[in-house]
């Protein structure tokens, strides 16, 4: 890093863990997560806020990691895909939404998947029983080149029905 690169020191809570880091003023949140914290589950696909691969939850709501500076996250609570397995057992344990993705073959190359998982996590917290239209509208904020979206919709709806069944 060049000597005159201005930095800010920020304190953030990410996936339940507190971090304090000096970060370059110009570094965006996605690059900060990936480069500074090695949380490489959040992907960068376009850097102009359209593809949605970098979507994370900031204070509980979805946001493009590429359209927010890391410095802006000072004091924020961030959730990334790395948080979703939660207490699921084992090194390959999956949370319910992740499991639904696997069950319904809702991912192929997997590059867009973490961002989509975060948007759907937000949706399902706000509205535990969205219909297909609501799922598709939320998904329209993401680009996926592999799946044609159909199995992603199916996975989201499976996660809904499992959650409803559990109640």
């Amino acid at each position: 890093m060049s000597s005159e690169e201005p930095v800010h020191t920020i304190a953030v809570t990410i996936n339940g863990k507190a971090y304090e880091r000096a970060v370059a003023d110009r570094k965006n949140l996605a690059d900060f997560l990936r480069q500074d914290l090695q949380l490489t589950g959040t992907h960068v696909g376009c850097e102009h806020g359209v593809c949605g691969a970098c979507t994370v939850l900031v204070d509980g709501v979805s946001a493009r990691g590429c359209l927010m500076l890391a410095a802006q996250a000072d004091g924020c609570t961030i959730e990334t895909v790395e948080s979703l397995a939660g207490d699921a057992p084992g090194p390959s344990g999956l949370g319910p939404l992740q499991q639904a993705f696997r069950d319904r073959h809702a991912l192929q190359c997997g590059f867009c998947t973490p961002g989509i998982l975060m948007s759907l996590t937000e949706l399902l917290r706000d509205d535990p029983s969205p219909d297909e239209e609501a799922v598709r509208v939320v998904l329209s904020g993401h680009l996926c080149r592999c799946t044609g979206y159909q199995n992603i919709v199916a996975a989201a709806l499976q996660a809904v029905s499992k959650a409803c069944g559990a109640r």
């Binding site: 806020g49 979805s62 946001a63 493009r64 359209l67 948007s119």
Partner: peptide, 8 residues
């Protein structure tokens, strides 16, 4: 836009 952009 989209939900993800309206949030900010």
């Amino acid at each position: 836009g989209h939900r993800q952009t309206r949030n900010r």
